[in-house]
Design a protein around this nucleic acid. Structure first.
Lengths: 154, 154
DNA sequence: CGTGAAAGCGAAGCGCT
DNA sequence: AGCGCTTCGCTTTCACG
């Protein structure tokens, strides 16, 4: 992991479809050297994959919501049952076990308020051991899709 | 936006590097038809770009944090000043204006607790008009990087 | 809008330094 | 490790149904 790898990651995080030759010139490397480094970064798991970034609103998903979940118990089986159930919901994009007063925080998308009301009901009925669900609507995304900061100094 | 476009988006969201010929066979289209559709999806802005997915922990970013921010005022200039300042922080990956008791929710990454303490201080000193900052640490990511749900029924 | 084939280009692999 | 060349495969485009 040197300066060149960092430059490669920074670039690929922004745009993974630029020709390697172009990228190589920008960072001061030959095409083949750059190519080999990329393959190594993939093999070593630093690059987990490549994905198209889709416009959420163009899909008709106007709402983005954070949901704070508190369970009725923090027993291991309860957490596991909840987490398994969570993965079955396509609308739940992310789920994090958290510190603080709530147990989990979810990121959920929905078409509109009616759609979210449905999802909300579905969650209450099919996610086990939920004691409370606190919904936080995002009114406006200020900053989105920013890649991870990759600093030269490690 | 028909069934084929949806299948294309679903596929590209998971892996944008598969050969088009392969993808086309999977969804039941010829290579060129599939290719034309992809270019159209790009032109129409449904596909905003292509990005490498980097392993956060491999970068040494062990911590992921949600921060709820309450400002001292909800005046337009105050919000704008805050939002402009937010974009200057590389460690703040996302920022959403939200409903509820707080004004904003941020997603922040950090190397470790010391690093986060630094970031926290930096935020308090350089983000204007912050009345309170509530930190929520994510202890374990349960679900990550799931693409948007793309339903056949619209 | 879909198909099939042809051409142009970048990615992948090689020997060498 | 880096470089330059060659090969191969995919993307891209075209003429046509």
């Amino acid at each position: 992991m040197d300066i060149f790898d960092r430059r490669i990651l920074r670039a690929l995080q922004k745009d993974s479809q630029r020709p390697i030759a172009e990228l190589a010139r920008d960072i001061g490397l030959s095409t083949s050297a750059c190519h080999r480094r990329i393959k190594l970064l993939e093999e070593n798991g630093l690059i987990r994959g490549y994905a198209a970034q889709i416009d959420r609103t163009a899909l008709g998903l106007k709402l983005q919501v954070f949901v704070e979940i508190t369970l009725s118990s923090q027993a291991r089986e309860v957490l596991e049952a909840f987490e398994t159930a969570v993965t079955r919901f396509d609308d739940i994009l992310e789920c994090h076990l958290t510190s603080g007063h709530a147990d989990y925080i979810l990121r959920v998308v929905a078409r509109d308020m009616n759609d979210y009301a449905d999802i909300h009901r579905e969650c209450l009925s099919r996610l086990p051991n939920v004691a409370s669900m606190q919904t936080i609507f995002t009114l406006r995304p200020v900053q989105q899709w920013r890649g991870y900061p990759i600093r030269d100094a490690d």
